[in-house]
Amino acid sequence: MRLPWSITAASLERAAMLTITNLQVYYDRAVEALRDASFEVQAGQIVALLGSNGAGKSTVLKSISGVLYPEDGEILGGSIAYEGTSLAGLAPHEIVRRGIVQVPEGRRLFDKLTVEENLLMGGYSRPLGEINAALDQVFTLFPDVKQHRSRVSGYLSGGQQQMVAIGRALMSRPRLLLLDEPSLGLAPQIIAEIFGAIRRLRDEQKMTVLLVEQNAQLALSVADYGYIMERGRVVLDGEPSKLLSNEDVKEFYLGMGAGVDQRRSMRDVKHYKRRKRWLS
């Protein structure tokens, strides 16, 4: 059965669903979070955006979703185009209506509402006649959520809350799903279930996913393409096989470099970082 949030064949023919070009973002007009960040997201793919803490990954998602303002963030340069149309100046709810929905880091559920009430909040923009079908589709993707539909969400485990957060996003029929650190703080078994659901959204529904993750091995195991960010800009990109074979990626993101088993001083580490190919 084709779910209502699936992508049509016509949309898959477009070269890029999302194009970010030379994006510059500052906080308080003083702290540079992104500098000339550029990348593309092809329709129907899972694209991984990787990098360490502070690299700018979450800022990219907030820029796309139009939610920089709570932290005094501002786009001061560059562009974000969704299906060839600029997102500049659009309010967050307008961006959601265009089919872009973000699942933020930390889930951020309405913890005093039940699971079902949280899901219904995600589907507020849909016709009433579609709500029950949308709920059934979320419950099919996450059977564990259905079992707890009447529980107050604040009493759920972290993994269950993450499933509800993703389900809430799916209720609004996204065409581009933005996931911010979905594996953070979760047990391996729950992570496997959540990433299995992400694969299903791509494989069965042709949904486009922009996945922000610190766990590079995990992200690249499901991604069709990946970008690595350092210091607010994209420094390396390629298909997962290319990134997994890169020596610098192995060293700093996979823990597989030649020097991993040798003790090195912080000075040596900093020197190595400075000589990384993408920063030379």
Rank of each mutant, 00 (worst) to 15 (best):
L3R: 11
P4F: 03
I7R: 11
R14Y: 01
L18K: 00
T19L: 06
L23C: 02
Q24S: 09
Q24R: 15
Q24N: 15
V25Q: 06
R29I: 10
V31P: 05
A33H: 05
A33W: 09
A33N: 05
R35M: 08
V41Y: 01
V41S: 07
V47E: 03
G51C: 08
L61S: 06
G66T: 02
Y69D: 12
P92S: 09
P92F: 07
E94A: 15
E94N: 09
R97V: 05
V103S: 04
R107G: 04
D111V: 12
D111W: 14
V115S: 08
L120H: 06
L120G: 00
G123Q: 13
G123V: 15
R126A: 11
P127M: 03
G129E: 13
N132F: 14
Q137L: 14
T140I: 11
Q147D: 13
H148W: 07
R149L: 13
V152D: 02
S153F: 05
Q162M: 12
G167S: 10
S172T: 08
L176H: 03
E181M: 14
L184D: 07
P188H: 08
Q189Y: 10
I190W: 03
I190L: 12
I190V: 15
I191H: 06
E193T: 12
G196T: 07
Q205R: 01
M207Y: 04
L211E: 02
L211Y: 07
V212A: 09
A216Y: 02
L220M: 14
V222Y: 05
A223I: 08
Y227L: 04
Y227K: 03
G232I: 01
G232M: 03
G232S: 05
L236I: 01
K242P: 00
V249T: 03
K250D: 02
F252P: 00
G257C: 06
V260H: 10
R263D: 14
M266T: 07
M266R: 11
R267L: 13
H271P: 00
Y272G: 00
Y272H: 08
W278P: 00
